[in-house]
């Protein structure tokens, strides 16, 4: 394992829109798996990723119930990353841009996500060994 470092990631894509979200979550997972402390700053549409009211749904076209469909909800991925970090003993800090949250009405977030501002992103980046911004196109 690498020496423990602090890595910050900025995400901007809303859920269910882009493969970038999948790749971003895979990067977060790999970073925690390697024992690094991870910060996430969610900006614009990405603040909906930990929205607590996301609900899995059935698939009537294929005749599958919600349980059979196992529709993924990103809030569970966020929670799973936080749980993984707790198990590994590393830090995991998810900050949602508050203005972006208010614009979109997604204030109810899973417990591991907190409200902040772009100033938090600056502080995170300043305190990190490295920062990756995954912007929308």
């Amino acid at each position: 394992m690498n020496d423990r470092k602090t890595l910050t990631f900025a995400l901007m894509d809303p859920p269910y829109e882009s493969a970038r979200t999948t790749t971003a979550f895979r990067l977060l997972h790999a970073a925690i798996a390697q024992g690094h402390d991870v910060n996430v700053f969610a900006y614009e549409g990405a603040v909906a990723l930990p929205f607590a009211r996301q609900a899995p749904h059935a698939n009537a076209t294929h005749g599958r119930s919600a349980e059979e469909e196992r529709h993924p909800v990103p809030r569970e991925w966020v929670d799973a990353l936080a749980a993984m970090a707790r198990e590994k003993g590393t830090a995991f800090d998810w900050v949602n841009c508050g203005l972006c949250v208010d614009e979109r009405g997604v204030g109810e977030a899973v417990a591991c996500a907190r409200r902040g501002s772009p100033a938090d992103f600056w502080k995170m980046a300043e305190a990190s060994h490295n920062t990756l911004v995954i912007g929308t196109r």
């Binding site: 690498n2 020496d3 470092k5 890595l7 790749t23 895979r26 990067l27 790999a30 970073a31 798996a33 390697q34 690094h36 060994h129 490295n130 920062t131 990756l132 911004v133 995954i134 912007g135």
Partner: peptide, 18 residues
């Protein structure tokens, strides 16, 4: 390569752009 290799480079301080 697995994506974890990119994390290793990030942790090593490589300047990153997406």
């Amino acid at each position: 390569a697995p994506l974890g290799e990119a994390v290793g480079l990030l942790a090593a301080g490589w300047k990153a752009a997406w």
